[in-house]
């Protein structure tokens, strides 16, 4: 063991001139980097995050596609892909819950609580890392979509705007699932607890089939819940307006209202839960 000369204790009293906001951003970036290193060391996360929607695309496109396409004015795969993008980020948001629950269980959050860092940094670093993961997964899945015949009917800007909306939606959902992860505090339970939240959002939605095919009692929920609203907006942006009477802008505003609402409600809940988590 090497013996080093005692260096006087240094007590940084300021965040090196960064100020409160600057310090919070610098902490969040440190946590974001940490989570991305973890993602790089577990490439299977990206692989399975991509494989799951790709399998859904193949199943719905080739197995169920014939049955549901009658009611549509566009090829089913073009209807399906925007729905897949939305479904995918819902399932992906579960990893926010799992990641935070793992940090809680391992004692990492306890350590972070004892450090002079911003109280929002851990959540910001986690949700932005999950956003980064979604970015790559969305690219991979759209490539798969193009291979099986998905075509954009609007233009490249509509497509990119749709992608942006999907990613923002995924980001908003990360805050919802952050509260799930912090509430259960165990990665396996987080996974199990996320499913009942995800399943109705994804399947009782217009992501894969038109809401018109659903029973009357389910339709009001299915039509207005965030996955359907976002899927409609993404569809409008990528393949144009399929329902007369509603403009693309209306869909997009509705979707933005949902995702901003989710963040405004769940981010403070998640931060409060984080403070009390350990």
């Amino acid at each position: 063991m090497s013996r080093t000369a005692a260096i006087p204790f240094t007590i940084p009293d300021e965040r090196h001139g960064l100020g409160r906001i600057g310090g919070a951003i610098s902490d969040a970036i440190a946590l974001w980097q940490r989570n991305l290193i973890g993602l790089r060391r577990t490439p299977q996360t990206i692989v399975f995050s991509t494989l799951q929607p790709v399998i859904f695309v193949l199943l719905f496109r080739y197995v169920f596609g014939g049955a549901v396409s009658q009611t549509l004015t566009v090829p089913y795969v073009d209807y399906l892909m925007p729905g897949i993008f939305c479904q995918m980020v819902v399932f992906g948001a579960m990893l926010t819950a799992v990641g935070l629950a793992a940090d809680l269980k391992s004692g990492m959050l306890e350590r972070f609580h004892s450090l002079p860092m911003s109280r929002s940094a851990v959540l910001a670093g986690r949700t932005t890392a999950d956003l980064t993961r979604n970015f790559f997964v969305v690219i991979l899945v759209s490539i798969a979509g193009f291979i099986v015949g998905f075509r954009i009917h609007t233009n490249v800007f509509g497509f990119l705007a749709g992608m942006g909306l999907v990613l923002l939606f995924g980001y908003a959902l990360s805050w919802v699932f952050a509260t799930v992860g912090l509430a259960v505090g165990d990665p396996e339970t987080a996974q199990a607890a996320s499913f009942p939240v995800m399943a109705p959002l994804v399947f009782a939605s217009s992501a894969f089939v038109s809401v018109a095919t659903m029973p009357g009692w389910l339709r009001p929920f299915a039509e207005h819940q965030p996955v359907s609203v976002t899927a409609s907006a993404v569809r409008a942006l990528m393949i144009g307006n399929t329902t007369p009477g509603t403009s693309t802008a209306t869909y997009v505003w509705q979707a933005l209202a949902w995702l901003i609402g989710l963040i405004v409600v769940f981010a403070p809940i998640a931060v409060r839960q984080y403070r009390k988590a350990v």
Binding site: G38, S106, G107, M108, S114, L115, P116
Partner: peptide, 16 residues
């Protein structure tokens, strides 16, 4: 927090 170090009862290191 600026003046303390803490190692909890269970080693809290990021395994990755």
């Amino acid at each position: 927090r600026l003046r303390i170090g803490m190692a909890g009862q269970f080693a809290a290191v990021d395994p990755l």
